[in-house]
Design a protein around this nucleic acid. Structure first.
Lengths: 199, 199
DNA sequence: ATTTATTCATAGCGATCGATACGAAACCCG
DNA sequence: CGGGTTTCGTATCGATCGCTATGAATAAAT
C-alpha cells in the first residue's frame, strides 16, 4: 500500500513489491491474483485504515461548519503523517496513466467522486437543518471542498508540514458562509448567489 | 506536449510520440536528444503557450483581490480548454513516478513551488500597499491559493466544466479577506490571526 | 523406508520499454 | 553516367515489465 501510495500504480513494479513484502513472485500471484487485484486490495485497506477521519467528520452529530472543519483538519493530518507517503492515495495512485491502466484511473476517479458526493450529502443535510443559507449551491460548494482536499494532497506531496496544511484548511474554511439568518439578511447586495459573499 | 499532458511523463511511450509526430525514432532522437529532453521542451512550451494567464494576472496593475480573481478564473479556463487535456501539466505530468524518474518529478515540483512563490510575491506587494490586512500570513495564503489551483487541476481532470471550475474559483475567493481598514477593525474577536475571519 | 503428493523458488516466458546500429536510397559533384 | 557522401527508415539492441512453467525440496502416506 505504501509503495502504491508513494509511486502510483504503474510506477510500482512487482520487483519493488516483491522486495517490500519478502515474497517470491508465485507467492504474490497466489495470494493476490495479479497486480491490479493487489492494487485494489491496497485501495480498500487504505480506505479502511487511513481515511476514516472523513466518514467520522461527515457523520458526527455536530453543526455543519464543525463537520467541515473536522474534515479539512483531518485531511491535513492524514496527508502528512510521519512515516507515510505524503498526500492521498486516491489522488497520487493513478492521476495520469497509460491507456492500459485506464480502468485503474477510472476507479480512483470514482473514489474521488464518491468523496465529493459524501461531502455534498452532508452539506445538503446542513442546508436542511438551517446550518447553511438557502441560496448556497451544495454541489458547487462540495466541489470546492473536494478540490481543496485534492489540492492539500498535492501540497502535502510537495512537502507541506502538518501545520502548513492546517493553516491551508483553516483558510479554506473562511469561504464557508456564516450560519443561518444573518446570511439571508443582506442577500440583495450579493450578485453571485452566495458564491462571492464579499465580492 | 498534449500526450505528456494527458498521460504524464512515464506513461507516454515513444511509440505514442512517434505516431503523434509522424517521425521515425532516429528523427526524434536527432531532434530532441532523448525522452527527458523532449519532455522538458514540452514543459517550456506549455509554460509559454498555456499558462500565460498566471503571469498576466499577477503582474496586472489592478488591486490584489482583482489580481487573485483573474488568477483563479484564468486557471478555470486554462484547465478545461476544449480539445486540450484537463488540468495542469505541472500537476499531471509526474505526480507519482518510479525512482528512475525522480528528477522529472522534482522539476515539476519546482515549477509548482515557483508558482506558489509568484503568488506569495504578489500578496506581499498587496500587503505593502494596504490591499491586505497586516496580520495575514502571505506564505500561508499563497499556499492556500496554490493548493486551490492544484485542486482545480484535479477537478478538471475528473471532468469538471469551465462553469464548475469558475464557481470553485469564486468560492475560493470568498476566503480572501476584505480590503484595508475594515479588516483590522475587528481583529480582537478573531483568535486565529486572520485565517478564520468568521470562525 | 519408500513412494506419492504438494509446496515453492529459480529461471525464463512474451511483450514492451527507451535508444541505436546498419543497410538502402537519395543527393551532390565530377 | 558514375563515385562518394550523406540522409534516413528498418530492424533490433539490452533492460525491464507483468507473469508463469518447471524442477528441486519438503511433507504426507502407505
Amino acid at each position: 500500500m505504501h509503495l502504491f501510495w508513494e509511486h502510483g500504480y504503474e510506477a510500482t513494479s512487482l520487483a519493488m513489491l516483491r522486495e517490500a513484502m519478502g515474497l517470491t513472485p508465485p507467492q504474490i500471484y497466489n495470494a493476490f491474483t495479479d497486480k491490479e487485484t493487489l492494487f485494489r486490495k491496497a485501495l480498500t485497506r487504505y480506505h479502511q485504515t487511513e481515511i476514516g477521519f472523513a466518514l467520522d467528520a461527515l457523520s458526527a452529530p455536530v453543526p455543519t461548519r464543525e463537520a467541515i472543519r473536522r474534515l479539512l483538519l483531518g485531511a491535513a493530518e492524514a496527508y502528512s503523517r510521519p512515516g507515510k507517503p505524503g498526500g492521498c492515495l486516491f489522488v497520487s495512485g493513478a492521476l495520469a496513466t497509460s491507456p492500459q491502466a485506464q480502468a485503474i484511473a477510472d476507479e480512483l476517479k470514482a473514489y474521488r467522486k464518491a468523496s465529493e458526493a459524501a461531502i455534498a450529502g452532508r452539506l445538503a443535510k446542513g442546508k436542511a437543518v438551517g446550518d447553511l443559507p438557502e441560496n448556497l449551491s451544495v454541489e458547487g460548494f462540495a466541489k470546492y471542498l473536494a478540490g481543496v482536499m485534492n489540492g492539500m494532497s498535492i501540497q502535502a506531496r510537495d512537502g507541506a508540514s502538518v501545520e502548513e496544511l492546517r493553516v491551508l484548511a483553516q483558510t479554506a474554511l473562511a469561504a464557508l458562509p456564516a450560519e443561518g439568518q444573518n446570511q439571508v439578511a443582506s442577500s440583495k447586495e450579493r450578485s453571485h448567489a452566495g458564491s462571492l459573499p464579499r465580492g
